[in-house]
Design a protein around this nucleic acid. Structure first.
Lengths: 247, 247
DNA sequence: TCCGCAGACCTGTAATGACAGGCTAGCGAG
DNA sequence: CTCGCTAGCCTGTCATTACAGGTCTGCGGA
């Protein structure tokens, strides 16, 4: 199978492994590399791109971490785009749409928008230096008037200049990011835990501090792997259950 | 600061980087390495353990990936105060494997296997008539010895004849279904909620009845749309958080 | 034709060396 | 005492080499 691959840029502006990773991801996204299609071996890739196996492995590791390919034990060994994918249908914007579709009234109220310096958690999630400027947004989403989801979002200010002053009332944050800043989410990780709210959060959500809630931490990134949004959401699971579809 | 570190086992039974990773993780879990405490530099670790920087970097990479430490540009990798967080990949068979890969010991104990008649919930989820025979399996999964996940599975007996007598100890149920019955999961739906366990479940999971847990309901089906498995799992989210990747 | 085994292929692991560029501490000048 | 600069430390990146052990393919014998 002969495939055309872009030549890698060696001016040091971007790591070789990242360029290679992007090149492979493009093939996967475009469908040129379909499900169960094995990638060339590490040695072959190393030859094709004239880079060391170190670089190849770095690129493949990243793709595995992004769950775009998976490893097959042994021969021919690597990968193919994942067929069984996690689809998170209950994503924040998706679920609101779903609820609207089923005749619920969904409103989003912005409680606070501030500019600040990234704390340790934000820095780690967004992969930015500690103290870099971030825009923080705290929003409450209601379904049929009932508090449903309390979200604390942080975004690197560098990527969204002026967002701390934008009017977000009842708007989808993702729409704003797309229209105003051209930011298109490519993927995300989420972690879910069961927690109790602190006094303040409990008051906002109108529950007691001994009501178990879902805590959802999320990081979303762009095509080029830049982390652009991190949030922690508290979800009243007595109102609705969190839905995850796996396809 | 002088710290005692275990000597690494070089018989090749376990990769050096994994031993090193575990050694560092132990320090972090025990609190010996606290928040904002910088780790030794790569070169220092390399000296201390008499391994190459390759090994050190492999171990650190894994710790970063597990989000137990985060990197600060420049000097030393810092330990984060974040609570221990394992990744539960929500994919069908991946979860236990992923944990094992990140160096945890995963065991599965079968508490009960019975044959019975589908109740209302099971019938609805599996789309079978009320009263049809189902195999019920109750299993407890532990990570590093700690109770982690309590799963009650129900499968239509028609699809898995004899499963109620199969030995499942420490086996992946999905492997058994695949090898023994040729059942290949195609997709699944999951719903997640935050709940308190009842007395019995709390005892099995070794928590109090006022510990908030994740309740996960799931239905999986085959290519031809046949529902073949329904389960309800209780997940100790103080141990790990539920991981969902969105691609 | 079928089966078994040897050798080729491939990945995982590990050591080593090298260099660029960022960050910091400490020194020296003002 | 303060400010600025430099040397050294540290990480990120990349190349090369080596070897063990698992997997697969194809050849040759039955």
């Amino acid at each position: 199978m002969t495939m055309t691959y872009p030549r890698l840029n060696r001016d040091g502006a971007e790591p070789l492994w990242m360029q290679l990773m992007r090149a492979l991801r493009t093939k996967i996204d475009s469908g040129e590399l379909g499900p169960d299609q094995p990638l060339p071996s590490e040695a072959e890739l190393s030859d094709m791109f004239s880079v060391s196996r170190t670089v190849v492995r770095e690129a493949l590791r990243e793709l595995v971490q992004q769950r775009l390919i998976y490893k097959v034990k042994g021969r021919g060994a690597f990968v193919s785009p994942r067929k069984t994918e996690l689809r998170f249908i209950g994503s924040m914007s998706g679920s609101a749409d779903d609820l609207r579709e089923s005749g619920r009234r969904v409103t989003t109220h912005t409680i606070r928008q501030t500019l600040g310096e990234a704390d340790e958690r934000e820095a780690a999630l967004l992969q930015i230096p500690l103290g870099e400027q971030v825009v923080r947004i705290r929003r409450l989403r209601r379904v049929d008037g009932q508090p449903w989801l309390l979200v604390d979002t942080a975004l690197p200010a560098r990527l969204v200049p002026g967002l701390e002053r934008a009017v977000l009332e009842n708007q989808s944050l993702y729409d704003v990011l797309r229209r105003r800043y051209g930011l298109e989410p490519a993927a995300a990780d989420r972690w879910i835990e069961a927690v109790f709210p602190d006094r303040e959060d409990a008051a906002v959500l109108e529950v007691s501090t001994s009501t178990p809630l879902l805590g959802i931490e999320s990081v979303a990134w762009l095509d080029d792997n830049t982390r652009f949004e991190a949030y922690y959401a508290l979800h009243r699971s007595d109102q609705t259950r969190f839905y995850v579809g796996i396809r």
